[in-house]
Write a protein that binds this DNA or RNA. Sequence first.
RNA 1: CGGGGUGUAGCUUAGUCUGGUAGAGCGCCUGGUUUGGGACCAGGAGGUCGUAGGUUCGAAUCCUAUCGCCCCGACCA
Length: 617
Amino acid sequence: MADAGFPLRSFPPEIHLPRAGRAASLAGSMKFWSQFFIPTLKESPSDAEIASHKLLVRAGLVRKLGGGLYTYMPLGLRVMKKISQICREELDAAGAIELWMPHVHPVENWEQGPRWAAAREIMFRTDSAGAGKGRSKEPEFVLGPTHEEVITPLVKQEITSYRDLPKNFYQIGTKFRNEIRPRYGLMRAREFVMMDAYSFDADDETAVKSYFAMKSAYEAFFKRIGVTAIAVEADTGVMGGSFSHEFMVPAEIGDDDVIYNEESGYAANREKATSALVPADLADVAPAGPVEEFATPGVLTIAALAAAPYSVPGEQQFKTLVFIGDGKPFLVILRGNDELEEAKLGSLGFTVFRPATAEEIEPVLGAKPGSLGAVKGTIKNPAALAGVFADRAIRLTGNGTTGANKDGFHLRNVNVTRDLAITKFGDFRRVRVGEPDPKGGRPLQAKRGIEVGHIFKLGTKYSEKFGAVYTDDQKQSHPMVMGCYGIGVSRTMQAVIEQSHDADGIIWPWNVAPFQVVIVVLDPLMQESADLAKTIALAAEQAGADVLIDDRVERPGIKFKDVDLIGIPLRVTIGSKGLKEGVIELKTRRQKDMVKIPVAEAGERIAAAVREAASRA
RNA sequence: CGGGGUGUAGCUUAGUCUGGUAGAGCGCCUGGUUUGGGACCAGGAGGUCGUAGGUUCGAAUCCUAUCGCCCCGACCA
């Protein structure tokens, strides 16, 4: 068989640009499909549910090792590198400094930190009973899910003066979380790639500046990689801290609900979202009379009390929930028809909390679930309670009904201020679509989103625990004010696919495409095709594109299908049919139509197309 | 952790209810015909039916245990 002029691997050496003296870059490294490795699949793997997960596998970007564990294949790795590099550039521009920390942490760091109790569940750790395997004592290690417990002691050690602040350190690397249920490919993985950054400031004012500098860097980052991500107010969760934004990619398959109103600009994670349901100047309803007890045999639910013969509407009931926070029971009071937003209990300051069991409830309140209440004087052992926390919305309810803390009895004419033993009001209910938004009073809407980034203003939670203090110009010692910031790099790659694909495959945004130009050589054994491919590839590469040359000896259908699947933005087709007319074809992944370009102008025109695409990206 | 499903060739799967020679498509290998949107013909290789025990003359199939994976829920920096 004639190998004349091909495969393209036999390129004469002079067309390879010299490496010496060039900066390290992905650019200028054209690949030949026949020499590269892009194992595409016609069929979707049976364990993939969502489009982006199927495409990740079908396009040969990743392969699964086990649940939530993935190999990044050569093509996928190229995308990951590009996303990381853009992330790096934007963070550097914002003044952050890259470093690299171990991902294996001594467990002591975590035991000393503020969130060990809450975080240990999801952390991989060495077997503390590992002794007896040859060594009498095994040190214990955990795999880092993030690095506050490493960076804070480091900064404590290295930075002691206000002159060295502020500082913002970041790294891009592997993170480990033993997710209870990994799913959707890279969306929720056990091992994943994340950028994490940590800012240290002398005071609150500059810490806020650092925070918003990072917010801007994030916005620039997501814009550059070509993904729509919106910043929404978020719950601080286990991280703690004073405020927080999440960056969400809108997508049906997202894990989070974003509550928003387009006109007012309000946007928040449902866990954090609030509404203007309760007016600030709300006056209490006048009591209709003294509290009355009445028998409600067998009535254990809000719905049962709302039904005949009692007919007390849900919003006229007070719902009493019992939780155990750091070992002590506490109560949460909501309107009967409202749902608890459990994340909001995080603001109460407990390290860990969970719903109480029926056995735990009875000795404290004096009744079983279904007849519980918080009316003064009815609680069996009020001294045992860590507090009674009431959702503000219960103030909308006057002369309501609640459990009597006596099985089979309820109380009516219950009024919030007069009758309930409330420690503190707060926002604990889940908002509903249609309620007035807190910014402009317009109706709230909801959509699903994928969380791809998260920024927190942490305050001094970690610096105090680890003693990360500095001395100011008055010789006074203060804890540093911290912020922490994360971007899920691998998750972002999948979010891009989820947001940018069609029935044929992925449509990569220019800046993160594994290759920006693919040259489909339909007759790779023809010398003329091979020569032209070389010329065009060089021109495209010199214009700044990463070039893939499909030099495989395959039928055209297979080549076109593969190219669409892997989503390369610009496609140049060289075929004998076109060459007879003296033309090649140029087509974008996004558009169906193609333009014919005279062979003589090919290099120049392709280079122009590359420059144009790059300038638009 | 609770509920549901599933495990058969590299991939997608049929067969399991009702026990009796393990089948197909894709992919792969050989030869030929093809050649601008996942071709066709002929031939071929490839399977401890997740694993371990049990029932049976006989188990992919029935029973028990166990492991993996997927979905729903809980959970989720």
